[in-house]
Design a protein around this nucleic acid. Structure first.
Lengths: 155, 155
DNA sequence: GACGTTTCGTTTGCTACCTGACAATAATTG
DNA sequence: CAATTATTGTCAGGTAGCAAACGAAACGTC
């Protein structure tokens, strides 16, 4: 999505977008050197630092649709970084785990998210951060309520 | 891109992302009823409210890559909403203009961006908005400087 | 145990964004 | 003027997201 036309070009909303897209671009440029996308990185993060995880749970953890995760996992399996096996008990569910190759790759990966966050907010006044967080949280909440509520424009 | 794993799940960065994605979802759900994507809407906005525009200039205005715009324009041309003709003087450049059908459609479109912004921030304390805007602007600036600067990770 | 329902993952088809490579056209420069 | 370089748009390929539809498996209920 492009920037808003001039009008609201300097609003909180416009800057939230710009910030998000910029940090995303930074993260992606770092990960590109390792042929990974951000979502792939998150999956690896989860499997490497937490544990093997059911695909269904992972989609909730990452806040993405099953269908989307399905594709991401397929990519990681194709690259040999992740293994996907059916659960013994419930054959519908797939359990994801990191492979040796995946762990080897993970060991040499940077933490692009942590780096971007530090770069963005280290040294900023804590009270200001709190205000910014609250403004964005409340705005998001209003949007969510609006979508769930009246015309319920689906989404 | 999914949410960050728990750790930073409540940071300014995480909320900026959530806000952006939520407002985007709202905007898209409104535009979907008219079979338009947000980028298509912006192109129409520009052509309807400002003037015919060179494709090159438009990609800068909207902050998207030429290649991306190329596809969006192709879609709009296919729908008959936009006309694309080569510049008389410089045959490389394409000039975009809105068609009658495009203008007719535009007349009955809502302004989803304005609506989302109003919904998000109307009634919020002006000083808080200012703080939030400054925090995001400065963070974005730091990221941009970092990308342009040292390792110059391209992007 | 058989029939409907729910859950889970995949597939398909769409939008939208990126990069890298390419052809065509201009502009520059020897 | 010819050769190089820059600009513009497109195409190919990749990532990431969604919704809708589908099959397989599990569950519920009778």
């Amino acid at each position: 999505m492009p920037d808003e036309p001039q009008d609201q070009h300097d609003s909180v909303g416009a800057w939230a977008k710009k910030y998000y897209l910029t940090s995303r671009a930074l993260i992606e440029s770092v990960l590109r050197e390792h042929d990974l996308g951000p979502t792939q990185w998150y999956v690896l993060y989860q499997l490497a630092n937490v544990s093997a995880t059911k695909q269904r749970d992972l989609s909730q953890l990452l806040n993405i649709e099953r269908a989307t995760l399905s594709g991401v996992v397929a990519t990681l399996v194709r690259k040999g970084l992740v293994a996907q096996v059916a659960d013994e008990v419930d054959q519908r569910q797939r359990i994801l785990s990191i492979t040796d190759a995946g762990r080897a790759l993970w060991a040499e990966l940077p933490d692009p998210v942590g780096r971007a966050t530090a770069l963005s907010f280290d040294g900023v006044d804590a009270a200001d951060l709190e205000v910014a967080r609250r403004v964005l949280r409340e705005a998001t909440q209003r949007l969510v309520e609006h979508m769930a509520g009246p015309g319920s424009a689906g989404a």
